[in-house]
Amino acid sequence: MAKIMLVDDAAFMRMMIKNALSASGYTDFVEAQDGAEAVKKYEEEKPDMVIMDITMPNMDGLQALKKIREIDPNARVVMCTAMGQESMVVDAIQSGAKDFVVKPFDAKRIVQTVGDILGK
């Protein structure tokens, strides 16, 4: 089963994503609460994909995305963004993000996006 890293400074957002994915059979998760921790854990854990918030303290999601892509040019990263952050989404896609989901998100959309990226 795929290992998925969830990166968000809000623990309840990580829990919501984990619950949605767990209900669809995903069981292997790694969590990080900011971009700096995400980069470190990406190197240690080598997850199959990352779902990452854009706006976080210490290192934002865009900076973390760029660092993760330096470590692994094939990294599969999906960015989470709040409404009204369209310019950040464009930046994320240009920096190598595979897709994005808008918060508040629909659980089905998260599951579908993960399935599409992991080829399930």
Rank of each mutant, 00 (worst) to 15 (best):
M5P: 11
S95W: 01
Q33V: 08
Q94S: 12
D48Y: 05
F12A: 10
R69M: 15
M52G: 11
F105I: 10
K67W: 00
N19W: 01
K46E: 14
L21H: 04
E70S: 12
N58D: 09
I110F: 12
G35D: 06
T27W: 04
E37L: 03
I117K: 05
D91R: 12
R109W: 00
P47L: 12
K108Y: 04
D9K: 03
F100E: 03
G119T: 04
K120D: 15
A97G: 09
R76C: 09
V30T: 14
K67Y: 00
G96Y: 13
V114Q: 03
P73E: 05
V101H: 10
D72N: 15
G115F: 00
A20Q: 08
C80D: 00
D28M: 08
I93G: 02
M1G: 14
I71A: 08
E44G: 06
E45C: 14
A36I: 01
L118C: 02
V50M: 12
D60W: 01
A38T: 03
D34N: 15
A23Q: 15
V77L: 08
A64C: 11
L21M: 09
M56L: 06
A23I: 07
G115Q: 07
V89W: 09
T81R: 02
M5C: 09
G61M: 10
K40T: 11
K103I: 02
L62V: 14
Q94P: 00
Q112E: 14
Y26S: 05
Q85E: 13
G96A: 10
V78N: 08
K3T: 15
I54R: 13
L21K: 08
R109P: 00
Q94K: 15
A36D: 11
G119Y: 09
M16E: 11
V30I: 14
Q94W: 01
P73W: 04
K18A: 08
P47Q: 11
I51L: 15
A10C: 01
G61V: 04
G84I: 01
K40W: 01
M79R: 04
E44Y: 02
A20Y: 13
V7L: 09
E45V: 00
A2K: 10
A23W: 03
F100Q: 02
A32W: 03
A32S: 12
V39T: 03
